[in-house]
Amino acid sequence: MSPLDKITLVNQVQPWYGEIPVYGQYTFGVAGERFFREIKDNARIMGTVCNSCNLTYVPARLFCERCYNKLESWVDVGTKGRVHTYTVACLNLDGSRISEPIILAMVQIDGTCGGLVHQLGEVTPDKVKIGIPVEAVFKAKAQRTGSILDIKYFRPC
């Protein structure tokens, strides 16, 4: 005879509601600080080069994840790239319908092993293909804050 057999109060068993009352405040880091300053101040996308692995990382990183060496060679990688893959997002985070679907792409920056996740603009979903060339469109300098959103979107070029 265990209490498990005697539970008759299931409808009265209620949940307790709660939340985690904290939020995140993130510094961009040693490499990130410089990477985002270049975007903010100069509308430039920077990478760091690993000469031993022959890779250029975008966004720029402090170290190579493969050989674990410090990366000290910074290069301007331009603002052009190709759509590596993409999706057309129709739902908001809360599951509601987005009125104007958003095209989210992984943009591989030319000459690098890396890329940026960003929106595509000035294009409709039916015109997007994997591999199409795109370029970054920056906000006006006065509106840039040092954020990935300083790039408005990438557009076909």
């Binding site: 993130y26 510094t27 880091g29 170290f63 674990y68």
Partner: peptide, 15 residues
């Protein structure tokens, strides 16, 4: 408070 990201801190120590 460190300027470094968590990844960068880990790398500095590991390296």
């Amino acid at each position: 408070r460190a300027l470094e990201t968590g990844k960068e801190l880990a790398w500095e120590a590991g390296k």
